[in-house]
């Protein structure tokens, strides 16, 4: 199977295999137990360090953000580290420092952990699994998106995935500006909750904004109409995407989320990129500068040219 790309292949694995086996409808990013929220996430990223971040920071922020997207204030984390035999101690130390620093910045405590070393060739340097515990925020009363709702974005997109790609390709772009956006999203969530009815929150990680919009459209049986020109992309990131031939809408983020909010909602610092529509249900369309509408579908795997 094509894994890792996010999108449809992963979704069918989750919907087809995991969810039925555990007798639940879907594997939500965060589950709630009374007033508490619980989430778990595994981190595999290559390279371990990249401009703007590293696997340790991702392991903290990714899990913290799953809690935030579930409308919960992150409280505490446990970690499980899987290390490949021969991993440099300096590398390990750097990641432990990164974890500690990210946890401090996100305001969460690391309350437990486990470490395993596996044979050489059995893990790509280091894997981290993080479990996070949060306190549900009463202001978060999520509901399905409705036609007329606005679609807000918390910041410019595509920085993380582009930084990773460039790091992998060893490009000597002057890429000081292209750094991962990994960060805790709780402060921004804390700010937006309570400004009005926030119907949905979703961080645009793997598969990018496009995949998340498709998930939302499909789950809620609505259409999403995005204004192409309204979607913020930093110029350096846009230039790199152009070079790489990739659409920023499909590029992973680690510090950007989408909020579906009631009409008339005003949220300083957020960008309004479009509207929830009735037709065509389950689809995401992009209004182009020519006035046409393009289909922004979910990718099954790696994008290959469709033009004959």
């Amino acid at each position: 199977m094509a894994h890792g790309a996010g999108g449809k292949a992963t979704r069918s694995l989750v919907e087809g295999l995991l969810a039925p086996a555990f007798g639940i409808k879907s594997l939500d990013d965060a589950a709630t137990i009374g007033e508490l929220a619980l989430t778990t996430d595994a981190f595999v990223v290559k390279p371990l360090r990249f401009p703007g971040g590293s696997i340790g920071e991702l392991a903290v922020n990714g899990t913290v953000n799953d809690l935030a997207m579930g409308g919960a204030k992150p409280l505490a984390l446990t970690l499980s580290l899987i290390l490949e035999e021969g991993l440099g101690s300096d590398v390990l130390r750097a990641e432990v420092d990164a974890i500690a620093r990210a946890a401090t910045q996100a305001g969460v405590r690391i309350v437990g952990g486990d470490t395993k070393v596996v044979e050489r060739g059995h893990a790509d340097g280091m894997y981290i699994t993080t479990t996070g515990l949060g306190q549900r925020d009463q202001r978060a009363q999520f509901q399905p998106a409705r036609p007329g709702d606005r679609i807000l974005l918390s910041g410019p997109i595509a920085a993380h995935g582009t930084a990773i790609m460039l790091a992998r390709g060893e490009f000597d772009l002057d890429s000081d500006e292209i750094v991962s956006d990994t960060r805790s999203l709780w402060p921004a969530v804390d700010a937006i909750l309570g400004l009005g009815a926030v119907r949905r929150l979703r961080d645009a990680t793997r598969g990018g904004v496009a995949s998340v919009l498709n998930e939302l459209a499909r789950d809620d049986g609505v259409a999403m109409l995005i204004q192409e020109s309204a979607v913020p992309v930093a110029p350096a990131v846009a230039g790199a995407c152009e070079l790489l031939g990739i659409d920023p809408m499909y590029v992973a983020n680690e510090g950007v989320f989408l909020a579906i909010v009631e009409p008339g909602f005003v949220a300083p610092g957020f960008v309004d990129i479009g509207e929830v529509k009735t037709d065509p249900p389950g689809m995401v369309l992009v209004a182009t500068s020519f006035g046409g509408k393009r289909v922004l579908d979910e990718l099954v795997g790696d994008p290959l040219p469709r033009i004959c």
Partner: peptide, 20 residues
Amino acid sequence: SRVAQLVRSGLNSPLTSSMG
């Protein structure tokens, strides 16, 4: 040179036998 890097790295650069 940057596109040359792209070719060498193979990033988002599939192999093609395309005549077009």
